[in-house]
Computed example of a mutant assay.
Amino acid sequence: RGEHAILQGDSEIAEVWFDQAAEYWKQAIALTPGNYIEAQNWLKITKHFDFE
């Protein structure tokens, strides 16, 4: 949805969607550390990663 919002020219809404996605990924990673390597990389690249 974030990418769709960007295509529609609404960067503010896109950021909200990306923040929500980051929260969901953090929860998934906390439940199964070592999985979701690509999601962990995305969190680091987008500066949403706040735990070691």
Rank of each mutant, 00 (worst) to 15 (best):
Q27D: 04
A5F: 09
W25E: 06
I29L: 00
A28G: 06
Q20R: 13
Q40K: 09
E12A: 15
V16D: 00
H48W: 10
D19S: 15
H4E: 15
I29D: 02
G34L: 13
A30S: 13
I29E: 00
A21S: 04
A14I: 02
P33N: 14
W25T: 01
Q20D: 14
I6K: 09
E12C: 04
E52S: 13
A39C: 12
K44W: 01
A39Q: 00
Q27V: 05
A5T: 02
K26I: 02
L7K: 12
E3W: 13
T32H: 15
A30V: 12
A30L: 12
A28E: 03
A39Y: 06
H48L: 02
A28W: 04
D19P: 05
T46S: 13
A5L: 12
V16L: 00
D50M: 01
L7M: 14
F51Y: 10
S11Q: 15
T32L: 10
G9E: 03
A39M: 03
E3N: 08
E12I: 15
Q20L: 11
E38T: 05
V16S: 01
W25S: 00
A28S: 04
E23T: 11
Q8T: 09
I13P: 00
E52P: 08
I13C: 10
T32S: 11
A5H: 12
K47F: 13
W25R: 02
G9N: 11
E38K: 03
E23R: 02
H48S: 02
